[in-house]
């Protein structure tokens, strides 16, 4: 009885939260097309989220390419399929591993940052101060951040994928004596638009999810400074789960087109 009531409460709370996030997203779509546009703030956010994440994404991508190639190489050698390495690595990274890993990294770096920043602005009444000065804080703080993550994530993923392929090419150059030119020729031969386009489209949704959940958690943060920590933490946890759900849906849809 107790378990079932807890389960019911949990389900109600889950669906209430989903409803609130949907309302929040609805407000974003209403406000994104209404005047005035906050271009300056949007550019500032794009710079903050894009430029300042480059190093982290680059290092992650490079190590991802290195490790992935090092781990796969012995198995491919065993089957005499070492020549397939560039194709296998590029398709895996571009279609799946690159977007998901980089989106998860960005959920940690950007999503938690947004959650903490807006949460702290909420508890120190900065959002109220903005509203009192006749500015729409939702438009200034939320719309610009969600747009910035939606626009920046695809760029970060493309950058991260390229660096990952560089890492992989380096391993092949050192261990397999494959030149960079030959490696990248094989990479571009094996990649089709059907690999690149769906993978890039889904990164827009990943970016939107990171911005949306980070902003939702931060903007509605309560309970003083403890609430700021909770907002930041919840932003990462919920975004990570949502990324996998979006990825599943994206793969499912693109699979229909392949068939």
């Amino acid at each position: 009885m107790l378990k079932s009531s807890r389960f019911t409460k949990g389900m109600i709370s889950f669906f209430t939260e989903v409803g609130e996030v949907t309302k929040f997203a609805g407000r974003f779509f209403r406000e994104v097309f209404s005047l005035p546009f906050e271009f300056k703030e949007l550019l500032r956010q794009c710079y903050n989220m894009g430029n300042r994440s480059l190093l982290l994404v680059g290092v992650t991508g490079f190590i991802l390419g290195l490790v992935f190639t090092l781990q796969s190489r012995p198995t491919l050698l065993e089957f005499g399929a070492a020549a397939w390495m560039p194709s296998m690595v590029s398709i895996s990274i571009v279609r799946e591993i690159g977007p998901v890993i980089i989106a998860l990294i960005c959920a940690g770096r950007i999503g938690s940052g947004i959650g903490a920043e807006l949460g702290s602005m909420r508890v120190t009444e900065q959002i109220d101060a903005m509203e009192v000065s006749g500015t729409n804080p939702f438009k200034f703080l939320v719309v610009t951040r969600i747009l910035a993550t939606t626009l920046m994530l695809p760029i970060l993923v493309i950058f991260g994928d390229f660096i990952a392929l560089l890492g992989s090419a380096l391993v092949e150059y050192i261990k397999g004596s494959v030149s960079f030119q030959l490696y990248f020729n094989q990479v571009f031969d094996s990649l089709n638009f059907s690999d690149i386009v769906p993978a890039t489209i889904k990164t827009f949704f990943f970016g939107f999810a990171i911005g949306l959940i980070g902003c939702y958690k931060g903007y509605n943060s309560k309970k003083g400074t403890a609430g700021v920590g909770q907002a930041s933490n919840a932003a990462v946890v919920y975004t990570s789960m949502l990324l996998f759900v979006i990825d599943f849906i994206a793969v499912f849809i693109s699979d229909i087109f392949y068939e």
């Binding site: 009444e125 109220d128 101060a129 903005m130 509203e131 009192v132 000065s133 006749g134």
Partner: peptide
Amino acid sequence: DELRTEIGFLFQGSALY
């Protein structure tokens, strides 16, 4: 929003951005 420009508000914690 227009009316709010006629009202200044000093917050307890200053609330500077």
